[in-house]
Design a protein around this nucleic acid. Structure first.
Length: 448
RNA sequence: GUGACUAUGGUGUAAUGGUAACACAGCAGGUUGUGGUCCUGUUAUCGUGGGUUCGAUCCCCACUAGUCACCCCA
């Protein structure tokens, strides 16, 4: 890599009134646009989401797969589709110094199928069920709940064409969201096989051509580029046009139709709240037959626009990626969006401890260090502020962290081999043998 | 990617064409080895860069970032 010449924009030295040279503080370096830190306060929620993803996946028989964040760019061009927004304008792709064309994964399904093909998983008992949790990247314009790096949880069932798979995946996705405490509805639709979809597309185009004068500029573009998108256009006046537009269900081939009916029957059986949404089309080329998206059920909130998860069937994806024909289905859930919906109900992380060790003087500090280790090994949640000198400050911290007891070790205690054990509630203190302190504390904590 | 709005300390806010107020958090102290109250001090060249002006945090422009709508989706 070429070494860049150091920037010579040398920070001017400002001379203060006292004549001393004062360095200008350099500009802080901030997050790259669209990136996000997950701070310690928020980790408990994230832990919960990851735990839930794992336990649900495993209880339905899914094994975890981790694919790299970096893949060959053509995986997404072929898998997701060259003309999709995800690839066309949101893909983080670049050429490495070794002239490889790589891209940061914008979604999880194509990589999983790639791995399935590459590792010959078609030789395993079918279907192969895998789940993933990890970051995805899309160079979109950031907004609330829309980041350029976001965490996804997804499940894929590869090698099974049965409609019950679709239904069970929808069940799992809905279950995850419900368990996180989010009330959600599932929107479902079927977009059939590529052939039936092509026929439908033609019908749709000819219908809208007759209404061309009523279309907005934006929608005229859609008509040419991606006519299916006209169905979820929010342009004024479209609602009326859409109700009269041909519906995809009427254009489905027999097999897709019965498949879809089956899925709906299973959903009814499972009692999953769903809505038929004939306007639901997905932005990835690989979908066939069943498609679904999950929306938060907060009717009063307008923020309920953004889907928190989605998925469907992608029977043709394996072949697109050079594998044999393998019917598959899956879903993905946006963990950041879940997080945004539930973070407010989250309790603060407690820094509370059972015992706090306060020390005085060098000798006391050394002894306290050892005692802290004893407590830790003894399984007692202990706190300390060894870098503080004043005992007052240490007691303040002990109090703030709701310690039930404080151990105080100073010069005198070190010489006697003792420690002061203070009950923080009553304020009573006793002197105990340092060697027995763990035992003593366990007894007291157990009682309390 | 398109349009609109916003940008004050760690956090949440206030005011103002003459360099900033309040609350909370933080740190240090209120005599020498002890907490929860109280008191004091302390913590911001007002996102970055330019312009207008005697002078800008407050006006103008650009940039950056965030938010909202669109696009799209997780």
């Amino acid at each position: 890599m070429p070494i860049k010449k150091p920037v010579t924009k040398s920070k001017e030295k400002v001379t203060s009134s006292t004549g001393n040279a004062v360095k200008k503080t350099p500009q802080p370096i901030n997050l790259v646009r669209g990136m996000k830190d997950i701070l310690p306060v928020d980790q408990p929620v994230w832990e919960r989401m990851r735990d839930l993803a794992r336990s649900i996946s495993e209880s339905y028989g899914f094994g975890r797969i981790d694919t790299p964040m970096l893949e060959d760019t053509s995986l997404f061009i072929r898998g997701v589709g060259k003309m999709t927004d995800i690839v066309e304008k949101e893909l983080y792709s670049f050429e490495t110094s070794g002239k490889e064309n790589v891209a940061l994964r914008p979604e999880g399904t194509a990589p999983v199928i790639r791995a399935y093909i590459q590792h010959g998983m078609f030789n395993l008992p079918q279907p192969v069920k895998m789940y993933y949790v990890g970051p995805m990247f899309r160079h979109d314009r950031p907004q609330h709940g829309r980041y350029r790096q976001f965490q996804s949880f997804g499940c894929e069932v590869i090698g099974d064409a049965n409609a019950i798979v679709d239904a069970q995946l929808i069940l799992m996705a809905h279950l995850f969201i419900k368990e996180m405490g989010i009330d959600a509805v599932v929107h479902v639709n079927s977009i059939g096989t590529p052939e039936s979809r092509a026929n439908y597309k033609n019908a749709l185009v000819s219908y809208f051509r007759t209404k061309k004068s009523k279309l907005s500029e934006e929608d005229k573009k859609r008509l040419l580029k991606n006519p299916m998108r006209l169905l979820d256009s929010k342009e004024p006046g479209m609602a009326e046009l859409k109700t009269e537009a041909p519906q995809i269900v009427d254009w489905l081939d027999e097999e897709s139709k019965t498949h879809f009916m089956r899925v709906l029957e299973y959903l009814d059986e499972l009692g999953i709240p769903y809505q038929m949404n004939p306007h639901l089309v997905r932005g990835l080329d690989y979908y066939t037959k069943t498609v679904f998206e999950i929306f938060p059920n907060s009717t009063d909130q307008e923020a309920a626009q953004a889907a928190i998860g989605g998925g469907g069937r992608f029977d043709g994806l394996s072949e697109l990626l050079g594998g044999r024909a393998t019917p598959s289905a899956g879903f993905g859930i946006g963990l950041d969006r879940c997080f945004n919906l539930i973070k407010d109900q989250q309790p603060e992380v407690s820094q509370n401890v059972d015992v706090f060790i306060a020390q005085l003087g060098d000798q006391g500090r050394k002894r306290a260090l050892a005692v802290f280790e004893d407590l830790r090994k003894g399984g007692i949640k202990a706190g300390e502020a060894f870098s503080k000198d004043a005992i007052k400050a240490q007691m303040e911290i002990a109090n703030r962290r709701h310690a039930k007891f404080a151990i105080i070790i100073g010069q005198k205690e070190v010489l006697d081999g003792t420690a002061v054990l203070r009950d923080m509630d009553s304020g009573t203190q006793e002197i105990v043998d340092v060697r027995k302190i763990v035992h003593e504390l366990k007894k007291k904590l157990h009682k309390a």
